[in-house]
């Protein structure tokens, strides 16, 4: 058994996530696409961990999942706050920092 298909699957998912980040206008949609990319990187980490017979990759994926959950919680809180302020969650229209 080789891990090549698993790594390829991770690459495909990463590209799909990148496509979502580039094309979505909705901030929540962009967050979801970022989730997809992080998920893809986790698959590749676990596949390399299996390939080397070394548990470091699995543990790193474990840490990544935790950081991602924290990121989503704070990100969604920011989205809700910006939404209250601007009445929109379209990334193009949120120009609070534009001078």
């Amino acid at each position: 058994m080789t891990v090549t298909p698993y790594i390829g699957l991770g690459f495909v998912l990463f590209s799909i996530g990148l496509f979502g980040v580039l094309t979505r206008r909705n901030t929540v949609g962009i967050l979801m696409a970022i989730e997809l990319m992080l998920n893809a990187s986790n698959i590749v980490l676990v596949a390399f961990s299996r390939m080397h017979g070394n548990l470091g990759g699995q543990l790193f994926a474990f840490f990544t999942i935790t950081v991602t959950v924290a990121e989503v919680a704070v990100g969604l809180a920011i989205v809700i706050q910006v939404f209250r302020l601007k009445k929109t969650i379209h990334a193009d229209e949120i120009t609070l920092l534009k001078g």
Binding site: F11, V12, F14, S15, I16, L18, F19, L22, T23, R24, R25, N26, G29, I89, D92
Partner: peptide, 19 residues
């Protein structure tokens, strides 16, 4: 809330290039 996408062609080219 419906969501639109923009720049579908450019996004597809960029992500396919990365792939």
């Amino acid at each position: 809330i419906t969501q639109q996408s923009r720049g579908l062609v450019g996004g597809a080219i960029a992500s396919l290039a990365v792939l």
